[in-house]
Design a protein around this nucleic acid. Sequence first.
DNA 1: CCTCCACCGGAAAGCCGGGTCA
DNA 2: TGACCCGGCTTTCCGGTGGAGG
Length: 394
Amino acid sequence: MPSFDDFIAESRVFRDRDVLSPHYIPDTLYFRDHQIKELMSALAPALMSKKPRNIFIYGKTGTGKTCSVKQITKKFEEKANGRSRIVYINCRIHNKPYRVMLKAAKAVMEGFDKQGYGLPHIYERLLIWAGEGKHLVMVLDEIDMVKHLDELLYTITRANDELEAGGVSLIGISNRLLFKEDLDPRSRSSLYEREMVFPPYTANQLQKILHQRAELGLHTGAYTTGAINLAGAIAAQESGDARYALKILCRAAEMTEEGESEKLTDREVNAARELVEFDIVKEAIDKLPENHQVVLYGVARLSISGSRYARLDETNDGYLFSGEVYEEYTTLCKRLKKQAKTARSYRSYLNDLEMLGLITSIESGKGIRGHTKLVKMGHPPREVIKLLSKRLEG
DNA sequence: CCTCCACCGGAAAGCCGGGTCA
DNA sequence: TGACCCGGCTTTCCGGTGGAGG
């Protein structure tokens, strides 16, 4: 009798791959004791039928914000036993007040999985739920992605005013510190009742974290201590981002697995670093809507064939006129048998691409007639073309 | 100094595909 | 089935903007 075990090849390197994934939450989170304690003390009132304060958490990507909150969520829900709930909401996906409320309602109430109810209806239902003395803590991860956030915050504060027992409170998470400036002062004060900062990890800290994961996720003896330390140092230098550090480690492990080398060493780590860098770009491009891809394709192609107006200014080497990129975009659309969008839409795409760091742009200055944007690729155009021609032209 | 150029980007309105409800 | 509601993506409209040209 064959067994599935026969087909699940034993890995030379990995003991448990999941441990290296960014979604894995270790039992002990290093270097975040202080933040975790503070979070717990802030949330404790909800377990005693009092309203906890709203919390705002700030920190760059990969500083353990989400991880800490998720870890606490587990403990909290065990303790609360259904009386109170913490609901995690990723605002990149649920980026409107309506969606956030719907997600919360779905999480908390059975049989609430339909769209088409108006916001007021969802609101009323939540009030009824909380009215039994229950507390809802909404974790809004990437809260800066929510459009009309003021409206959402207002809705929630009003809910608390209407309730006699129970309540709704918030944990907002963001990696943009500045975003509080575009908030209405009233919502600002409600969201910032308590503020917490998660600093980037240092090289030493990242190394310890990586060692922890390597011990759990990789076979003993499959890696060198030096390699782990190198990965930590690289990530610390870049950003102090633990997710990035883990990606490098994971990639390096994969390379070891596929390659000749017996152990994961500095060599694999260095190679993995480059791969990871391009992986990130590739992922960003893949996720782009089609029109954005075509525009980027156009920028890349012109970067190689050269700008028709080029060399007006030697110092602005590699920059393209917004106008000529639009022309290239429309001709590309024709070739791909797509209806080109208006110039106004095109300008939005350009801005989106710039926000993602896929292109850079500057304002035109002297020597150029009128007023326009000059655009340049943020990454090697040939690589991008290779990727996009496959994607777009099949 | 005025006007034109070649764009910029906010606001608002329209369309579409997905859903509910009576 | 028709009236509504939602979000996402567009288009339309239009008031800027800073340098070039006259």
